[in-house]
Design a protein around this nucleic acid. Sequence first.
DNA 1: CGCGTTTACGTCGTTCGTAACGATA
DNA 2: TATCGTTACGAACGACGTAAACGCG
Lengths: 331, 331
Amino acid sequence: MTLAQLRYLIAIADSGLNITLAAERVHATQPGLSKQLRQLEDELGFQLFVRKGKSLDAVTHAGEQVIERARIILAEAANIRSIAANLRNEARGELRIATTHTQARFALPAAIAALNARYPQVSVHLEPTRDADVLARLEAGQVDLAIISSAGAAPSSGISLPAYHWQRVIVTPSGHALAARARPPSLTDLAALPLVSYDSSLRPDSSLRRAFAAVGLEPQIAMTAGDADLIKTYVRAGMGVGILAEMAVHDGDADLDALPADHLFAPCTTWVVLRRDSVLREYTLAFIELFAPHLRRREVARVMAGDPAGATWTHVPQWRHQRESSRALVA
Amino acid sequence: MTLAQLRYLIAIADSGLNITLAAERVHATQPGLSKQLRQLEDELGFQLFVRKGKSLDAVTHAGEQVIERARIILAEAANIRSIAANLRNEARGELRIATTHTQARFALPAAIAALNARYPQVSVHLEPTRDADVLARLEAGQVDLAIISSAGAAPSSGISLPAYHWQRVIVTPSGHALAARARPPSLTDLAALPLVSYDSSLRPDSSLRRAFAAVGLEPQIAMTAGDADLIKTYVRAGMGVGILAEMAVHDGDADLDALPADHLFAPCTTWVVLRRDSVLREYTLAFIELFAPHLRRREVARVMAGDPAGATWTHVPQWRHQRESSRALVA
DNA sequence: CGCGTTTACGTCGTTCGTAACGATA
DNA sequence: TATCGTTACGAACGACGTAAACGCG
């Protein structure tokens, strides 16, 4: 058993059991991986994968267990390398972030630009990921941090740091009847209209559906998309009334009317999630602080070091304020 | 960075920074370790050890961190090997146990003999360890399980399973005045006599001292030893009255009188302690069950798999009953 | 017939042990 | 002078890449 074998094993598992693809990803040749995999299986004395003809078809039960352990080993090996890189003030490296479209498109650009200005040698990889898979990719060690939103409590896995709070807004084509009224729209008003929102609102336990259900209503969701830009496009096209994150509405949307909806829906929190027991590179702490200035690197480092109480982050900013201070840091 | 390098690193750390000794322990040559250590340091870009002349003098601060991570890596690698060995019903291997003298001498022989009968290919290593170091050796991965007693709650580190409860007994040369009385001795009686007990009773917070302190008395501890046999020897020699674990008194001690002391001192519990996240070999579960039959392998395995509730082990036997059922298993 | 895996083979790099050297107490 | 670590060297092993063969859809 060697670290290289374990790395190949994980690469194969993460490439959908395609050895050729895995070989490209680890910058090696396909026969090399094939052989090393066989050697590992020989040494352990059982199959890690189920073969169907020559191809890999599935992961063995024991294979799952080994992969789980191998991920820990590789993560700790990466941790050791991080300790080393931090110690010699290495400013080069990569930062892999798993996040949703809304964060990537509207919340992160300022922080990433600021990071790039300070650490030009760090290449940032924004990994586009479906909401449900974000935490899985973090746990699997495929990314260094995850940025994800929730309407309620912090995500259960990993270490979650609250970055900012935000509200939903109601978006209509400009001049729509809803915006013309004197009083703000109610849930009853909305339930009578076709809605356009995120894919996640199709889940029966989504905070959107729960808000309606709490007053005995059911929304008509005319269409969903994973992407705030698409939602706005279809709102413009008259498909219905959009309900989306306030971050997604900006100055360029002059042809849309945005009405606050904080009186209708629960507030949301965007979290920075880190893998437990991971050693962060210096620039990762810097990035977190650029993204959410109240997450000071000293305190984050202390929490990661296992300080059980840690900081409790009592003063989490609202979205708008957050942005202003972030811009100040860029300047 | 290779697994071998990390293994050498840990061996050096665990050999008191003596490379020659470490080399013997890992069955390799000293120049080999020396070179691999240097290569690892070169790759990481900093010193893991502080040199004084040519010798290793201390561990660097960063070295501590790397060693901590390396221990995890090696433990997980061992876990993978255990998964493999279990899967092919490998009945060969070793079982390393860190425990105190009393357990090794009086509680373990039956279980170890029974294990040996069932798994003759498994070599058991009883690692003699001072009370205070038992858990450290477990955490460092130097042993597979620890067996240790406490008067109160379970040890904080690792996963603790209660094996049995026991009481202390008062031991005197046969015919001693204390044994001749009608009523059982009180703490006041004992405080007036020179006592012989375990080294650990010198600690100001030991359960022995606390029992006396609770009624405003201070015991006269004439001498201590780490070893129940030594205590009995010196009781025979008239040094004083012995206070020791009931397990340590058996049929061969006809020239001693043993008086129960459960009305004077808090009951103790002996625990089997396992490293969190460790994969146990099949025979390790068997051993635990032989040692404490109520710790059934199914339930132990479930607790180790991370079942948070797990079994709660409500029926922990007293020492004497425990032994009878254990003998039954041997037969 | 293309995609993906395995087998075969030659080269290169690395590890490891032996032996000699060096430093330190 | 004994102990412990480093340097030097040669042999053996193992990993890797290229090239060709094999199976499957």
